[in-house]
Amino acid sequence: MKHLLSAADLDHDEAVAVLDAAERMAATQAREIKKLPTLRGQTVVNLFFEDSTRTRISFETAAKRLSADVINFSPKGSSVSKGESLKDTVLTLGAMRADAIVVRHPASGAPSRIAGSTWTDASVITAGDGTHQHPTQALLDAMTIRRHLKAGAGDLAGRDLAGLSVMIVGDVLHSRVARSGVDLFTTLGAEVTLVAPATLLPVGVETWPAARFYDLDRALAEAPPDALMMLRVQRERMSSAGGGFFPSPQEYTREYGLDARRAAALAPHAIVLHPGPMNRGLEITSEAADGPRSVVVEQVANGVAVRMAVLYLAMTGEKEPAV
């Protein structure tokens, strides 16, 4: 794996291998000395055209735990008209001999453009591009789900998500988390259900390998999830073209929010995920976010392990970590 541009790039065995590698990385993080010498002398650039402190520090932590040198670069402009072009930025990083570039960009496909260009030889890892993909988020979600719901019979290694039901609720239209999740979870054998108002589902979603509901309560009753993922709703979605994608935050919360009542109706083993940052009181109430089913904080910890695994596999070219 030289690049990781999309969760759809991973086939079943590759995806399981990344999760297994992430578990081995996580095991090293329980040691007193967390730092591994694996990527010593290599340089990872976090190229973030969009603000995201959480994702950036997760990648930065992962790279540093592998002893890579880390450079954070957050250009202000993101297009030809707004300052330096993507091409010139990447050429500059290439000239500085970056070994891997972790890219977050508001334009869908920008990391693919970099990876497919002659601008750099570096590995390109997508850290979220537009409304396209966020593959390490899907991997950390899968890791979290696997830990909770597949650990029953001993060793996790080699296991996938077969037989599990994953429900994704919210703004699927604009969500790279949802697209990556649908790709990865179905690759790993899970059944995926999407729940959203029709305004927040893309035209074409009917061809996705996922069931769809417009009614959350009906979905919870008819397709009870083992893992329930609540997507972040951006408040600006209420004021964009056409007067907004939904009428009011209050109506959204009533129809699609996860509150204590809905959380209590979940199966006893079910877990609740959120990619963060949460809008408490909009898509999830504090009772649900902080309740016993919530694995939100654990997702963050697993994010570091997953990103260590991805950087390791992409930068060393090996199939599994020697740690």
Binding site: T131, Q133, P202, V203
Partner: peptide, 24 residues
């Protein structure tokens, strides 16, 4: 114009997957 604000490509199966804003 209102149906195509920010539109990038044909709205359909492919746009739903590649995450580019649809031009219906």
């Amino acid at each position: 114009p209102r149906l195509t604000e920010g539109a990038q490509m044909h709205e359909g199966v492919v746009s739903s997957q590649v995450g580019l804003a649809g031009w219906p």
